Simulated scan of single mutants.
Amino acid sequence: MFAVVRTGGKQYRVAAGDKIAVEKLAGEAGDTITLGDVLLAGEGESLADAGSVTVSAEIIAQAKSEKVIVFKKRRRHNYRRKNGHRQEMTLLRITAVGAAEAKPAKKAAAKKTKSEAPAEAAATAE
């Protein structure tokens, strides 16, 4: 299954096992993150509902990209400026692309049962 995700103002086509370099994201090497902005998803020729698809990734490293040289010159004015810039980036390994799991719903159900349990205990105590 593949998905098109948006992060850092760019779009990436990803599948499980892919490695991509994106704009810097919060986290350390080894952390697992979820890329939430899924634009398109599918498998082969068929497309899936992008709203129900989640993409999880593992941070491989926080690094800097290659240096970009910025050179400014104005002819006949003896004006030359040379500067360099290295953009920070995050290296990701896509671990899973698939349907959203029902874990939040289970947590919500567990919270409800915890709040109902004291009410039931109070009712039986009376």
Rank of each mutant, 00 (worst) to 15 (best):
A108H: 02
A26K: 12
A102I: 11
A96Y: 07
I20D: 04
K103D: 11
R81G: 08
I33K: 00
T7D: 03
P104M: 11
E126L: 15
E58S: 11
Q11W: 10
G42Y: 01
V22Q: 06
R86M: 06
A122C: 06
V55L: 08
F71I: 15
I94M: 02
T95G: 09
G51Y: 09
T124A: 13
A99W: 00
K10G: 02
L92T: 03
G84V: 01
A122F: 07
Q62T: 08
T34K: 13
A3Q: 10
Y12S: 03
R13W: 11
K24N: 00
E28N: 00
I33A: 12
L25D: 02
T7I: 13
D31F: 05
Q62R: 03
L35M: 11
V97Y: 06
M1D: 00
V5K: 07
N78Y: 06
D31C: 09
D37K: 11
R86Y: 00
S52V: 09
L47Q: 06
A121T: 12
K73L: 15
P118Y: 03
K72Y: 05
T54F: 09
K19R: 14
T54Y: 10
A117D: 03
L47V: 08
V4E: 09
T124S: 15
R81E: 15
G98N: 07
L92F: 00
K64S: 13
E101D: 15
M89E: 03
D31N: 07
A108Y: 05
R13N: 03
K24Y: 04
S52G: 13
A105C: 03
K107H: 14
V97I: 06
L92K: 08
E116Y: 10
A119R: 14
A63L: 06
A117I: 07
A63V: 04
A121S: 02
V14S: 05
I59E: 07
G27D: 00
E28D: 01
K73V: 13
Y12R: 05
A26I: 08
E43L: 08
S46P: 02
V14K: 12
A57V: 07
